[in-house]
Every structure is written in C-alpha cells, then in structure tokens.
C-alpha cells in the first residue's frame, strides 16, 4: 500500500492537467453538439460516434493536401452537417426510429471514414504544417486559450440561435411535437436542422482533436456519445449545485463545456492513480448510468410499491392489535 502511494508523483499530475483541460475544451464542443440533440430535440443521436471521426478524418486529409488547418476545420463542420442531415432524413422521411437511424449513419460513416483516409489512421506531418491547436507542450497554454475562445464564441452563437424564432421552434419541437405542428412548425425540418447542427459541432470537435493529437483514427469516435452525455450531465449537476436558481441559458451551455473539462480532469486523475486505461470506458459508462438513474431512483424513493407494501403491512399490524 505504502509502496503504491510512494509511487504516485504529484508533479506528474500537475503536468498532466493542462492537457486534460485542452482535451476537455475540445470535447466540450462535441458535448455542445450532444446537448443540441439530447436536450433540445430530446433525441439520443448515435450518429456522433461516426461523425466525430469523420470530422477528424476530413481535417487530417485536407491538411495533408496542403489546406489551411482552419479552413479544414470548417470543412469538418460541413461533413458533420451532412452526416446529421442524413440521420434526420432517415428518421423523418423514411420513418426509421431515431436511435436506429443514428446507428445506421454511424456504421456507414465507419466505411466512409476508412475511404476518406485510405487506412485506419493518418498522421499530420507536424513539421510541414503550422497548427494553432496542438498538444506541443510549449504551446499548450496558447492552444487552451484558442480553444476556450472558440468555445465561448460557439456558446454565444448557440445561445443567440436558440433564442431566435427559428431556434425557439426547434426547442418547441423537442418539447412538444403535437403542439409545434398545431402552431405551424414543420417538426420534420426542425429535427433535420437540429441533428445537422449537432453533428456539425461534433465533427468540428473531431477535427480539432485530430489537430491536437496530430492524427485521426477511424476509432477515435468510439463511445463519443457516452463522453458527450457524461459532460452534459456533469455540467448540469455542477450548474445546479453552484448557481442554482439564477442559472440562465448561456450559463447552462457554458456548464456543458465545464462538465467536459471536469470529466477530462477526473480522467487524468484516475489515470494518475494508475487505473488501467483499458477500463476507462467502462468507468465512464458506469458514471453516466448512475447519473442518468439518479432522478428516477429519487422518484422511486418517494413513491414505490415496495414502500407502499411496507407501510400497508405496518398498518395491518397496528390494526390487529
């Protein structure tokens, strides 16, 4: 035991933190995309596991072909838009349940991503390209500032859009479809728009991550939906705890990104504790399952058949006496 604690190196943890923050910020943009579909549209969209890697693949290949890295990110965003729109069309125009539509797009993107890259992974020639988003230790803090500014800008744009007439109609679609149609909102179109925008953000994030780590991998999006959900949920819990009643929508969106940063800092911490890296996805899934279950369990604690039965038996005993 002592040996274990002695083997832990405090300085190493401190050194790993900036990397965690940078990754958290990048994945925060992905989490904003998940927030769009999961919270605004009330759809669990599994396209993201594929579109995240598509963004990365497109970005890396464009840079390899001499494109400007920032322009490559824009194209990555566009690939996500298309991927999300395909899921939306499968769901609304062909009547396929949303979860299945997402899975179909995701699995087809696996092939598409392999085709984009020509093999399972592709590296960026970092000596030939000037990257603004990079894990290079000397430039890490600059990367963090750049990505943070991107996050704040994207949050502001999302805040603005969701406050407009169009964005309100999108939120109404997620909240009550029948009402939305009665008020003249084309709910099919709104779902397609929401899924497209969400996946656009996800692919943008994938592009950023590929620049950060210097390569894209066909499996880089595996389990992305779970990480996105984890960030959304951690953010919500933290926001409720810290800000409570004065929480406005802008802060809500900000806390999605903060949730993602916290997730990655915890990730760094757990790895530092020498938790096997192979088990991280299992741990993440368990954490998300617990957080998703908490509201339900709280409700059950207040009112369940089990407790009703216990009360009834207690009363019965009292009556017998």
């Amino acid at each position: 035991m002592l040996e274990y604690f002695a083997s832990l190196n405090g300085a190493a943890l401190l050194r790993a933190c900036p990397g965690g923050i940078a990754q958290g910020l990048i994945w925060g943009i992905m989490a904003l995309g998940v927030y769009m579909t999961f919270r605004m549209l009330d759809l669990a969209d599994l396209t993201v596991d594929g579109s995240f890697a598509t963004g990365g693949a497109a970005c890396v290949m464009l840079i390899a072909n001499g494109w400007n890295p920032e322009l490559a990110l824009l194209i990555a965003f566009l690939t996500g838009l298309v991927a999300g729109a395909v899921t939306g069309l499968l769901h609304t125009k062909l009547g396929i349940p949303a979860i299945l539509a997402g899975i179909l797009t995701q699995i087809s993107l696996y092939s598409i991503n392999l085709n984009i890259m020509g093999k399972a992974n592709q590296a960026i020639n970092v000596n030939a390209t000037v990257l603004r988003i990079t894990s290079n230790a000397n430039l890490l803090w600059r990367t963090i500032v750049i990505v943070a500014v991107c996050c704040v800008a994207l949050i502001s744009v999302l805040y603005w859009y969701l406050g407009t007439e169009h964005g309100s109609a999108l939120r109404a679609t997620g909240s009550n479809g029948a009402m939305s149609r009665a008020l003249g909102i084309n709910t099919d179109t709104m779902k397609i728009v929401g899924l497209a925008l969400g996946n656009g953000l996800v692919a943008l994030s994938g592009g950023m991550l590929s620049q950060y780590q210097g390569f894209a991998d066909v499996n880089m999006g595996r389990g992305a939906i779970v990480i996105g959900l984890a960030a959304v949920i951690i953010g919500e819990v933290l926001a409720e705890a810290i800000i409570g009643k004065r929480l406005n929508f802008w802060l809500r969106l900000l806390f999605v990104v903060i949730g993602s940063i916290v997730y990655y800092l915890v990730y760094v911490f757990v790895l530092w504790l020498k938790f096997p890296a192979n088990d991280m996805k299992l741990l993440t899934a368990i954490v998300v399952a617990i957080f998703l279950a908490v509201p339900y369990l709280q409700k059950m604690r207040k009112s369940s058949f089990h407790h009703a039965g216990v009360r009834a038996r207690a009363q019965q005993k009292g009556g017998d006496r």
């Binding site: 407009t164 169009h166 309100s168 109609a169 939120r171 109404a172």
Partner: peptide, 25 residues
Amino acid sequence: AANMQLVENLALALRRGKTRTLRWG
C-alpha cells in the same frame, strides 16, 4: 410546451403559421 417559459409558449403561438426567422423569439 412544458419545459418552456409561459412567455415563450405565447411567442410561439403569436407566430403561428408564419415563417420562423432569425429575429429574436
């Protein structure tokens, strides 16, 4: 819409059948 504000619900209704623009809701 249960998880939208009263004022947002009314604003959605005031725009019934109209094109939803990018003006403030």
